[in-house]
Amino acid sequence: MKYEYNKKPELYTPIMMRIISKRDLTPDVRFFQLVPKEEYKHLDMDYKPGQFMMLSLFGTGEAPFSISSSPTRKGIFEFAIRKTGKLTDKIFELKDGDMLGLRGPFGNGFPIEKMLGKDIIIVAGGLGAAPLRSLLLYILDNRELFGRLIYLYGAKNVDDMLYKPDFVEMLDSDQIELFLTVDKGNEGYEDSIEEGKVTHLFKYITDIDPANTIACVCGPPIMYKFVVKEILKYNLEKDKILLNLERRMKCGCGKCGHCIIDYRYTCIDGPVFTYWDVIHMRELI
C-alpha cells in the first residue's frame, strides 16, 4: 500500500514567531504583532480573512486564535487575545522579542471571491471584532473591489470596545458606513458611540439591495440569533449571511474531533458557515 505524505511537514510542527509589539486593546484583550523568525521567512504563509492559526507556547500548550491582520499587509501576523485561561495568562506575560509557536492557517475563511463587487454588511459583537478586522482591512485595502461597506459594532461598555480609537476615527471616513454601540455607559463618547444592543443599529441601515449584499457576523454565541433575525428583514438569501463561529480545537486539521458539528468540522468546513448551514445543522448556533 502506498500513501502520499503530507507535503507540509509543519502540519503539527509550529514555526517560531517573534513578538515585535503589543498593546492593550481593553483591560483583558491584548494586541500582538508577530513576525516569523529569520529561518521561516521564505515560507508561503498566505491566508484569508476569517482563517485561524494555532498558537503554541513552550510548555503551556496550544489553542486556536483568529487572525486579526489582513493578508493585504504581508509579513506581520496580528492577533487580539483575551486573557481567559492558562495559555492566554502565559501569553500575557510575554515581552517584546519573546517567541511563540504558530501553525496554520486553518479553516475556510470568508469566501472573498464570492464577495467581490458586493455590498458588505459586517456585524461584530465584543471580541468578534478581532477576526472581522482581517476582513475589514482587506476590504479597505481593496476598496474599489467592493460596493457599500457597512460596519456595526457592539461591545459591553466603552472599555471593552476593541480598536476603539481606530473605529472612532473611522466614523468620519467616507469609505465606510460605521455605527458603534455599547450595552451601557457611553460617557465621554456620546457623539460617537450609542447606547443599546448591536441590533439597535440596524435602524440606520437602509436601501439594502438584497440580491447584491453579503452579511458577515461574528460575536458571542448568544448574539447570532438576534442579529440574523435583523438581517433577514432585508430579505437576504440565507447563504449570503456568513457567521464566523468558535469551537474547541486541538489539531486544526479535521482529526482531533473536538470541533465537530454533525458531520462537519469547524476547522475544515468552517469557521465561516452560512445561515443555511445553521438551519440544517443542529447545534451550530
Partner: peptide, 30 residues
Amino acid sequence: CFNIIDDLELNKELGHRRRYWDSCQFKDYS
C-alpha cells in the same frame, strides 16, 4: 478523537507534546 497537551521535563529545558485518546462523552470535550 484525541486531545493534545504539553508536558515539561523536570529541567524545564525540554518538553513533549502528547497526543492521547479523548472521548466526546467527556463533559469538557466541547
